[in-house]
Design a protein around this nucleic acid. Structure first.
Lengths: 155, 155
DNA sequence: CAAAAATAGTTGCGAGCGCAACTATTACGA
DNA sequence: TCGTAATAGTTGCGCTCGCAACTATTTTTG
């Protein structure tokens, strides 16, 4: 962005896309999170469990987990309190580097995720994916990949 | 969603779209809000001012404002405290219906929005719009309009 | 190798927001 | 018309989360 910003307003088409995106994305997120509530999980818990389930040995360094979840270190500490209280995840101190701790998904956590995931996928389909054409899905993927590339979320 | 959910997983293409969307949208929102901070506004303040600036007489009933901003009543009450402290918005009691209060943008609020809006638009362009082709922008608009139609955000 | 810097994680604090409960006012139904 | 229901808004409370400050460990560097 230049020092003196020469304003180039959004065209009608651009405005339509921006407004549709900005208003709908928050509604969509709420709707999908609401479908998780019956299982005693919120969106943050689910994301955490999903990340761990994909990781080798179902464990991740707190540090890396915070980055992928877009949480601050302290934010992850607090969220871990919640899932640990529910016995879905354990905290394990590293032997090699005594600074680091691992978040490790428990059997109970894995069982819960296995139970919830199909409902979550169904929810994502119902609210979003199944409403879009193949072309729209491809366009969405490339569009957000381009946007992500431009954001260079540091490191 | 049926009672017994028959899981139909996401295809590779669908998963790509979903992941790109879900990870990027949160980064995008943060990036755009960060560009507002130098002006002493956060995303919520900007949205509030933008809605008021579009309304007749730059005023809206608290109630309607809360709905369009996707805030609870109490959430709006608290957010109003902030923008009122900054003298950007005033709270005006209605004469005809003594239950309702209007949020009215002040001259100062209007001046600030006029100053900030070009930077915000530039930010939205830089982070999102200008990175997309015309086709992608059209696809995004129709895609999110379809999604919104399926969410029927009650009221 | 000692001192400085980087890294991992936790804690205190404050901001934002939703829910439930409450007050005040208006609309409605018998 | 009176009583009930609906509507508008605020307040108390709790949750999530980021920032700044802090501790505890490496890692780097002169």
């Amino acid at each position: 962005m230049t020092a003196v910003t020469r304003t180039k307003w959004l065209s009608a088409s651009e405005m339509r896309a921006w407004l549709a995106y900005i208003t709908t994305s928050s509604d969509l997120q709420r709707a999908i999170e609401r479908d998780l509530e019956p299982f005693g999980l919120d969106g943050g818990d689910y994301q955490l469990l999903a990340m761990l389930s994909d990781a080798p040995d179902r464990r991740m360094k707190m540090c890396d987990l915070a980055d992928t979840l877009r949480l601050s270190r302290s934010g992850l500490t607090r969220r871990m309190e919640g899932v640990m209280r529910k016995k879905l995840v354990e905290r394990v101190q590293s032997e090699s580097d005594k600074r680091v701790a691992y978040a490790v998904m428990t059997k109970k956590g894995m069982n819960l995720l296995t139970k919830v995931a199909p409902h979550h996928v169904a929810s994502v389909r119902e609210k979003m994916i199944d409403r879009l054409s193949d072309g729209e899905i491809r366009a969405l993927a490339t569009a957000f990949e381009k946007i992500a590339a431009g954001l260079n979320v540091d490191h």
